[in-house]
Every structure is written in C-alpha cells, then in structure tokens.
Nucleic acid binder design. Sequence first.
DNA 1: GTATTAATGCAAATAACTTGCATTTTATAA
DNA 2: TTATAAAATGCAAGTTATTTGCATTAATAC
Lengths: 142, 142
Amino acid sequence: MASYTQEELTGMVQEAGLRVTGHRLAVLGYLSKVKNPVTVYELVDALRKKDNIDQATVYRNLASLHEAGLLRRLDFNHGHAHYELETGRASHQLVCSNCETIEKIEGISIDDTVKKMLKKSKKFKQTTTHSMEIYGLCKNCA
Amino acid sequence: MASYTQEELTGMVQEAGLRVTGHRLAVLGYLSKVKNPVTVYELVDALRKKDNIDQATVYRNLASLHEAGLLRRLDFNHGHAHYELETGRASHQLVCSNCETIEKIEGISIDDTVKKMLKKSKKFKQTTTHSMEIYGLCKNCA
DNA sequence: GTATTAATGCAAATAACTTGCATTTTATAA
DNA sequence: TTATAAAATGCAAGTTATTTGCATTAATAC
Ligand SMILES: [Mn+2]
Ligand SMILES: [Mn+2]
Ligand SMILES: [Zn+2]
Ligand SMILES: [Zn+2]
C-alpha cells in the first residue's frame, strides 16, 4: 500500500525514538506492503520464515510501534487484533458481522459527522486521526 | 436504558425461538438496565450473586441471544467483548484509544455516509443496523 | 571501545473464551 | 398431568490470543 523504502522506515523508527532493529523494520516493511489490516498470526507466520522472529518479539514490536503512533490497531469483533500503518488519514471499513470479510473504503470523509459527535460529547473534546467500522453483512453472508 | 418488563423480555426470547430461562431473562434484564455496553466480566460478576449463574452459561446465553439478533457485540479494541441490547437503531460511540473510556452519542445519523460507502463497495451491498466507533483521545488522556 | 539500556528468544503464565459431559429444565405431545 | 425430546446448566478442563520473567544479545550514546 504505502510501500516505504528501507531508509524511510528507518527514519520513521528513529523519529519515534525507538531503536532500529531488523525485526522492527521487518514488521513495518510487511505492513507497508499489504493492503488490508493484518492479524498477528499472519505477521508471525510471514516473518518467522525469513527473519526467524519469535511471536513474543512480534507482539512487543507491534506494541512499541503502536505506542509510538506508527501503527493503528483494529479489532472487527474477531477476537484478535489487526494492525495497519498509521497514515495520518482516517481509515474507514465495512465489516461483515458474520464472517471475517472486511473492505477498506477510500475517498470518503466523515469529518462533519465527527464534528457533530464531538459537539454532543461530554467526555471527548477532540479526535486524532480516526477509524470507523460499519458492520453489516457481506454479499456472501447476506 | 430500554428497561423492558419481564413480560416483554419473555416475549422477545420466545419470538427469537429460544427457551425462556431465568438466566436468559437475567442477562437480558441486566442489559436493559445499563446505559453503556457491558463486559462479560461485569455481567458474570453482577449475575453470579443473585442468580448463581456460571460464566459458561453467561457466555452461552450471550452467544445465543446475539445469534438471535437480540444483542449487539462491540469490541473497542479492549481485548474483550462488550454487549448491549440490539435496538434496531444504529449505535454510535466515541472511544478513547488510550484508556477504556467510551461514550455513546445519540441523535446523529450517518445513513448518507453508509450509502456512499456501499456505493464504493465491492463486497457489500447492504448493511443491517450498523454500529460506528470513532477513536480518539478522551479529555482525560488528551 | 565501553557502558547503558533496549531488544530478543524461549518457556511459562495469564486472560478471554470454549467445550465435554453428566445432570437438570423447558417445551411439546400424548 | 405425565412422558419425551431437545435445550440449558454447572463444573472442570481445554483453547486461543496475548503477556511476562529471565538470561542473553544487540543498539545507541559517550
Ligand atoms: Mn480477523
Ligand atoms: Mn472494555
Ligand atoms: Zn460475510
Ligand atoms: Zn482516555
């Protein structure tokens, strides 16, 4: 998707105040190549081969990168986490309530809606870059 | 929130094709009284006292009621599920990315946005009643 | 280079949720 | 009513996703 160069990824990690390690770059590199949010299982499975990385390390890197604001975590009611690169732009997806199908939808804005919600809110004064998941039934499950 | 009578809850369970049991009514009854989506832990803790209900039973009842369309399940990236009564109307909330604060926002509609998303979608042709979670930072965490 | 501190692997632990099985209960039919 | 079949329940044990402890290794700063 975003597909950054190794140098760009290195810069991102450094600016986040994290140490540059092969594993950390491998995690970021993988996430920069896929188009849908990725499960930890998929990441572990993909990286174990070439990078001989342990799952604990994957989890720890996901946590540190997420903490640093480089990743977004999404849930989809699947009982496990998914991650994608934090692009700074909002992330919108349709999610099937029945199967694990999701679809990212690009090119819409809900800034007005978010503004309205904030106006009604007592506990929130602002949102950072947001994500929105709309649940429904995919064509297959409908 | 909705606060149904025992008779109404019984009718809902029957129309869903499920058997009417004390535990099942207790789960529904509890959910009808709270205003925010409830964790399984909270439910087990609350019902164990007066109803002497096992957690396996709570999980099984939540699953059957959800399956039957009487409940909505929400995740909020907390690593555990939350449930609320399915009212048939959309459910919108602001969710803190940092702590476990959530806030339900009533009285807004995103039907137009959903329509736009569906128009752009390849995998979805319709949504049922939807839920939307907007992530940001609550006042406390901002 | 050396020191400091973070990252890693591996195994064990925890949290959330599920399942097997023997025993009630419920709904339905006689 | 009473009998019957199917679903619900408790309790213990099992899974899956994720986290943690600890000894070792590697990355940055001086
Ligand atoms: Mn998934
Ligand atoms: Mn929660
Ligand atoms: Zn589906
Ligand atoms: Zn917060």
